[in-house]
């Protein structure tokens, strides 16, 4: 009785947090659409979003600002959820798609593409394929009648190191005119995103997130160890494979659209845990919303409030890190 009472109260708190986060996110989105070289009022944004207003405003709002805002939000959600899934499966708080090797593989493909062909045509597709291939390679190399999380991490580090070395080599052997776009790409940017990106990311999230939310319960029992998980009747390997696939899908779509945006996948799950408690289905949703907030806030900052325009990936850590350090400091105080 007592347990159920506690968990219910806990859930209510998280649901409250979700509502707050969603409200903050929606507010931020509307605000971000009003910002820009042409400052718009909320009313104008509302009208233009419904297709009313002059051509110029319609163009700015419908084809430039909304896609960018929504890309930031969807990718933030995708990255944060992906990080939660990987940290849960690996039972290690330092794991993220960056460490598992997906980003490194995708980056290698993208940088090679940019350095050799000097064009961004076809780049997202190549990157996506690169991400999937490295995920498949890592999973295949870790398979020995099952995938142990530690083996997955070590293999991931290995694959990551090799692909990162190829990337570094590409950066050094070619002249700076060719490598500059590649170096900038590796910082992660959502400049020039379009409705196509938004649709793609949304589809991924809509497919992945519900399944992930349902799997958070078995994932929590996995934290107790393989033996306990099996005795609870959870099909271990199948659940693990599903969660890895889901995490990979989210990480791959994000890196394909924006390049490797750091920090969010690694840190937002920790921030969510410090605010809302240990991972569960509802906390996963909160984590996603928090990821959306951090990425959108970073993008707004990088576009409108800095003396120079920086790729959003550079700003993300600058925005997220101080807050994270504050959370860390506060959790120390309480401990």
């Amino acid at each position: 009785m007592r347990t159920s009472h506690v968990s219910q109260r806990f859930d209510l708190r998280v649901i409250g947090l979700i509502i707050v986060a969603a409200a903050v996110l929606v507010g931020l989105m509307l605000w971000s659409v009003t910002l820009g070289s042409v400052q718009l009022s909320l009313r104008e944004v509302y009208e233009a979003s419904l297709g009313r207003g002059d051509d110029r405003t319609l163009l700015v709002v419908q084809s430039l600002r909304w896609p960018r805002t929504l890309t930031a939000v969807t990718l933030g959600i995708a990255l944060a959820c992906s990080g939660t899934l990987f940290q849960g499966i690996a039972r290690n708080p330092l794991v993220s798609p960056d460490i598992i090797g997906i980003n490194a593989g995708a980056t290698m493909v993208a940088v090679t593409w940019l350095v050799l062909f000097s064009t961004t045509d076809g780049l997202p597709i190549a990157t996506f394929v690169g991400a999937l291939l490295s995920a498949a390679l890592i999973y295949g190399l870790s398979w020995r009648g099952g995938v142990s999380p530690n083996r997955l991490i070590l293999v991931g580090i290995g694959v990551s190191a090799m692909t990162a070395a190829v990337t570094a080599y590409m950066m050094v052997v070619f002249p700076i005119e060719r490598t500059r776009p590649a170096i900038v790409w590796t910082m992660g940017s959502i400049y020039g995103s379009n409705w196509h990106d938004v649709r793609l990311a949304t589809i991924f999230i809509l497919v992945v997130l519900p399944v992930a939310v349902m799997l958070m319960h078995p994932l929590r029992s996995m934290l107790l160890g393989d033996l306990v998980t099996r005795s609870l009747g959870v099909p271990l390997e199948r659940t693990r494979l599903t969660i890895i696939l889901l995490g990979c899908a989210l990480a791959s779509i994000a890196v394909a659209i924006a390049g490797p945006i750091g920090f969010i996948a690694l840190m937002v799950p920790h921030m969510a845990r410090m605010i809302a408690g240990p991972a569960s289905g509802s906390v996963l949703i909160f984590t996603g919303l928090l990821g959306g907030i951090v990425l959108l806030l970073s993008d707004v900052l990088s576009q409108h409030f800095l003396p120079v325009t920086l790729p959003v990936g550079v700003v993300t850590s600058a925005v997220g890190a101080p807050y994270f350090l504050y959370l860390l400091y506060r959790s120390n105080r309480q401990a």
């Binding site: 993300t316 850590s317 890190a321 309480q334």
Partner: peptide
Amino acid sequence: SGRGGATPVRLALAGVVVSALLASWTSA
């Protein structure tokens, strides 16, 4: 900082965050 002291996880997390921050300044 605080009473808990530098536990392994806190140390690692702080290291990763500070690294991320410095890397972003370097990129800039």
